[in-house]
């Protein structure tokens, strides 16, 4: 408990420090930081539309950040969540458009199942290469993200195109209901929360979770204890991929209603950032994901209300990472000193 309180305080300090440094940038643009941050907060949380947008931003981030954490728990650095979101979205769109012979509730289920299956299959490739051939999963997933992106672009510009000027697919025949009109917030939020709770439970209360944590923290011990570390590694990566796929499915069915080219832009990266800032602490990750969602949705309001460019928000998130990393370096140095 003491430990988690400590890490909570650390996160708070990180947030305050980054906002302070953000203040400097706002001052440089010649604006009043207090009114700028005020506009940001009001824009993100103060209006129904703003809050709805924040929630709509938060939903996929929650899933992608936890997807990254699950991979991190087994010792993988999964940069490929974004690609998994894209392919999950594609699969959901394809099924949602074409399998109309299914009654609506079943079609909805089929979309989720298809998204999870395709995204997991995509995640299997780097997982397998890493487990059996020790190929860096970081390289493979980064490259595969581009591949996924262009597969999506090709399909909605060609075979799956709705024939519109913007590359997008036909509308899907089943959607997830919106909860805060006119914003994009939708019932996918509840699905995401349920799934994340289930994942946390799995990690800490089941033997699967035990094995994932063992392989992630000491693979030599896992091997010795008879835990098949290769299989566990692959399974955790599949789960990570599925979570990305679900995020894609919710975006397509809940936000857009069709597959929109480039819809997944930054969803994977921002989820990864949320996880990295809190060092893959799975309980803190959702809060960080929410905070980033607030920054993102409030940024536009800030720009309109105060004239501070919304890229200041990107600066603040970048500073986050720097500070979080610095803390990591400081801890390492301490350990090193003790070692001497």
């Amino acid at each position: 408990m003491n430990q988690s309180l400590k890490s909570f305080i650390k996160i708070l300090i990180t947030i305050v420090l980054s906002l302070l440094i953000g203040t400097i940038f706002i001052l440089v643009t010649g604006e009043n930081p207090i009114s700028a941050y005020g506009a940001l907060l009001k824009g993100a949380l103060g209006t129904k539309l703003g809050l709805g947008t924040t929630i709509a931003n938060f939903t996929p981030l929650l899933l992608t950040s936890v997807a990254f954490v699950v991979a991190a728990k087994v010792g993988a650095f999964n940069v490929g969540v974004e690609g998994e979101v894209i392919l999950g979205g594609l699969a959901a769109a394809y099924i949602g458009i074409n399998w109309v012979f299914l009654p609506a509730p079943l079609l909805l289920l089929a979309c989720f199942a298809g998204a999870m299956a395709v995204a997991a299959a995509w995640a299997f490739i780097p997982a397998f290469l890493k487990a059996y051939y020790n190929v860096s999963e970081v390289c493979v997933t980064i490259l595969m993200n581009s591949v996924a992106l262009y597969i999506g672009s090709y399909l909605v510009s060609g075979p799956m195109s709705a024939g519109t000027a913007v590359p997008q697919s036909d509308p899907v025949q089943v959607t997830i209901p919106k909860i805060m009109n006119p914003s994009s917030a939708n019932a996918g939020l509840f699905i995401a929360i349920l799934i994340v709770v289930a994942v946390i439970f799995m990690l800490y209360k089941t033997k699967w979770g035990y094995k994932i944590r063992t392989v992630g923290t000491n693979p030599a011990h896992a091997e010795y204890a008879g835990i098949g570390s290769k299989r566990v590694f692959i399974n955790a990566m599949l789960l990570s991929g599925m979570l990305g796929g679900i995020a894609g499915c919710i975006e397509v069915l809940g936000v857009h209603g069709f597959y929109l080219d480039g819809f997944a832009k930054d969803l994977g990266t921002n989820g990864m950032l949320a996880a990295l800032i809190v060092k893959s602490n799975i309980v803190a990750t959702p809060f960080m994901a929410f905070f980033i969602a607030v920054l993102k949705s409030g940024a536009l309001a800030m720009q309109q209300a105060s004239g501070v460019p919304k890229s200041v928000v990107d600066i603040i998130t970048a500073i986050f990472i720097v500070i979080a990393t610095m803390e990591f370096v400081i801890e390492l140095k301490k350990k090193h000193k003790k070692g001497e």
Binding site: R213, N218, H221, Y224, G226, I227
Partner: peptide, 26 residues
């Protein structure tokens, strides 16, 4: 595989308790 051998009747105190024998994060 190590697991199959253990099930056949092996217990093993490894020479390195820090890397093999224990998972210190647990």
């Amino acid at each position: 595989k190590p697991r199959a051998i253990r099930e056949t009747g092996l217990a093993h105190i490894p020479e390195n308790r820090n890397t093999r024998g224990l998972n210190h994060t647990m």
